[in-house]
Simulated assay, not measured.
Amino acid sequence: MTDTPSPADAEGAGNDGGDGDGSVSLDPRTLRGLAHPLRIRLLAALREHGPATASGLAARLGESSGATSYHLRQLAAHGFVEDDPERGTARERWWRAAHRGTRFDAGTFLSHPDPEVRGAIGLFARGVALHHAAELDSWVTRLDDWSQEWQGSFDLSDFSLRLTPARARALRTELHAVLESYRDPAPAPEEPEAEPVRVHLHVIPRTTD
């Protein structure tokens, strides 16, 4: 699983109003609220880096503060972000992610009778794909900044398998379980070299044409 919203599921920060694991399940209304590339990036940044202001997020993402402020309000209207009362002041509004992650059943939405809902899935999935590509590009660009230990620990593998839809779902479930077994709430004191690690998981069918 990842810390960015993804069509299968995702995790980040917060724990209100969602499923038992602290994530929130999308419905057609909230899906449309998240189906925007900048909103996906804003939510991912809040989940990965913690609370921030619209201006702070604008600087981090290379956007205008007007754009980040507008889209943060839209995310708030759909329940994805909320005010951070511990940091907000009369002059500066701080935002935080409202849930650990985002989940939805892509198959159910793709068969939805409303074409706008089906279209929102495409926007959402493309936004997540672009975010993953940007993260990977950033890592490759800055590879020399990391220690030899980390340079020897990353992975850019891909595999070609022949699967049925049922086996593909089973593979996804098993891979998620393996990743969860490596999740710790915080690195132990004897592990000062621990760093946040991003794991992208893509399971996509390919035509033989």
Score class of each variant (00 low, 15 high):
Leu175Arg: 07
Arg47Gly: 06
Gly122Val: 03
Thr2Asn: 10
Glu11His: 12
Asp145Pro: 07
Glu195Val: 05
Thr141His: 15
Glu195Ser: 02
Gly56Asp: 00
Leu163His: 08
Ala170Tyr: 14
Leu161Pro: 02
Thr30Ile: 10
Pro192Arg: 04
His200Ile: 01
Gln148Asp: 03
Arg96Ile: 09
Val128Phe: 09
Ser55Phe: 07
Thr30Val: 07
Gly50Cys: 03
Gly33Thr: 04
Phe159Asp: 05
Pro165Val: 08
Arg39Phe: 02
Leu57Met: 02
Ala97Val: 04
Arg39Thr: 03
Trp146Ala: 06
Arg93Met: 13
Trp139Asp: 04
Pro37Asn: 14
Phe104Ile: 01
Asp21Gly: 09
Asn15Asp: 10
Asp19Lys: 10
Asp155Met: 04
Ala59Gly: 02
Glu174Thr: 00
Ala77Lys: 13
Glu92Lys: 12
Leu43His: 12
Val140Ile: 15
Gly12Tyr: 08
Arg198Ala: 12
Leu31Met: 08
Asp114Phe: 00
Leu171Gln: 06
His99Cys: 14
Arg167Tyr: 06
Ser64Pro: 02
Ser23Trp: 00
Leu46Asn: 04
Phe80Asn: 12
Ala35Pro: 06
Asp21Ile: 06
Ala97Trp: 02
Ser138Asp: 10
Val203Asn: 02
His99Trp: 15
Asp3Val: 15
Leu38Asn: 05
Asp209Tyr: 13
Leu38Asp: 08
Glu190Ser: 11
Ala13Glu: 12
Ala98Pro: 03
Asn15Leu: 14
Pro165Tyr: 04
Arg172Asp: 10
Ala59Val: 01
Glu92Thr: 13
Thr102Asn: 13
Phe159Ser: 12
Pro37Phe: 07
Arg39Glu: 02
Asp27Gln: 00
Val128Thr: 09
Pro85Ala: 11
Asp158Tyr: 02
Pro37Ala: 09
Asp27His: 00
Trp150Cys: 00
Leu143Met: 13
Thr141Phe: 14
Ser55Tyr: 10
Glu180Ile: 05
Leu201Trp: 04
Phe154Trp: 02
Ala76Arg: 15
Ser157His: 08
Glu174Cys: 01
Asp19Cys: 08
Glu86Gly: 15
Ala54Asn: 01
Gly88Phe: 08
Leu38Ala: 08
Ser6His: 04
Arg198Lys: 05
Ala90Met: 09
Leu72Pro: 09
Arg91Phe: 11
Pro196Cys: 00
Leu72Thr: 05
Arg198Gln: 06
Leu57Ala: 03
Leu130Trp: 07
Asp9Pro: 08
Gln74Val: 06
Glu92Val: 12
Met1His: 12
Gly50Asn: 03
Thr164Asp: 11
Pro51Gly: 01
Leu34Trp: 03
Glu116Leu: 12
Arg162Gly: 11
Asn15Ile: 15
Arg96His: 07
Asp155His: 07
Trp95Tyr: 07
Gln74Leu: 13
Ser181Ala: 06
Pro5Gly: 04
Ala67Pro: 03
Phe124Val: 05
Ser181Gly: 10
Ala76Val: 15
Ser138His: 15
